[in-house]
């Protein structure tokens, strides 16, 4: 197609909620109902020893998964060291470490299919 605007639109980074497939997140929530209770306070990310270098953040993982950005989420999860520091600080009492393991299992097995 001819570029009539004189500039190119890169692949949209906008979130399209109409296109979000919720199947896997629902599956995650069936096992980890607390996945929906995050209030995005940032305590987990602020204490995460991997976060500063890799961008790992439980908060962002949960957020990305719910916005259909699974690739971004799984990339972050891959730098988690499972140290459990985030588990200790979460004011909502979410078992974040267990949650990360469930994310890995549910999303990765799906991916490898």
């Amino acid at each position: 197609m001819m570029n009539i605007f004189g500039f190119r639109l890169s692949a949209s980074s906008a979130i399209d909620m109409d296109k979000v497939d919720r199947t896997l997140f629902d599956k995650l929530c069936a096992e980890e109902p607390d996945a929906r209770r995050c209030m995005s306070c940032g305590s987990c990310s602020a204490t995460c020893p991997a976060g500063e270098f890799t961008g790992m953040s439980v908060r962002k993982v949960l957020h990305n998964l719910q916005r259909g950005k699974e690739r971004e989420a799984l990339k972050m999860v891959s730098s988690c060291m499972l140290c459990g520091k985030c588990n200790m600080v979460c004011p909502r009492g979410i078992n974040t470490r267990h949650l990360i393991l469930s994310v890995c299992r549910i999303y990765k097995t799906e991916e490898s299919r």
Partner: peptide, 11 residues
């Protein structure tokens, strides 16, 4: 004082 600036997403 340490926190995450959750709007930028950085410590």
């Amino acid at each position: 004082v340490k926190a995450e600036d959750t709007l930028i997403g950085k410590p």
